[in-house]
């Protein structure tokens, strides 16, 4: 098995204007590594949605990306409020985002469904009051 390239980011939750920076960096790195455009696109969209979610709902967290020959794994981990009802959160159009987030162009309740759509595997480990870890895999 060949080497896996790993990236780690601390996602700042205090400043919305920086939300999405990690995903932009990952996209650039994956292009440099020569991954196929369609794979990069799927990883980018899924990670970006997740990163924005972490900033909106959990005051930031960490993002780890592991890129190997046949899959890219994205792990987003936060110490936010957790998700009381994952099934409900997965429904298209369901959102708990406040109006000020909608005014920034987000919070349409499409983040989770979109993350699932663009990845081959999506796992949500969440404990209310402790935090959430989302693991997504894109295979190719």
């Amino acid at each position: 098995m060949s080497d896996t390239v790993k990236f780690h980011f601390d996602v700042d939750g205090s400043d919305f204007s920086s939300a999405g920076e990690a995903s932009v960096t990952v996209k650039k790195k994956l292009r440099q590594l020569g991954y196929p455009p369609e794979v990069i696109r799927r990883v980018s969209i899924a990670m970006y949605e997740g990163e924005i979610n972490m900033v909106i709902h959990a005051n930031g967290g960490t993002a780890d990306v592991e890129a190997s020959d046949d899959e890219i794994v994205i792990i987003l981990s936060d110490k936010g409020p957790g998700i009381p009802n994952v099934e409900l959160a997965m429904q298209a159009g369901y959102s708990t985002a406040k109006d000020h987030i909608r005014n920034l162009g987000f919070g349409a309740g499409m983040g989770f469904p979109n993350m699932k759509k663009y990845t081959d595997e999506m796992r949500i480990d969440t404990v209310v009051g402790q935090g959430t870890t989302i693991t997504m895999k894109v295979r190719f």
Binding site: F16, A19, P37, L104
Partner: peptide, 15 residues
């Protein structure tokens, strides 16, 4: 008509 850095980042994600 939206102005914030996420407009640029979103466009970047969507190629």
């Amino acid at each position: 008509g939206l102005i914030n850095p996420q407009v640029i980042r979103t466009a970047n994600m969507m190629d």
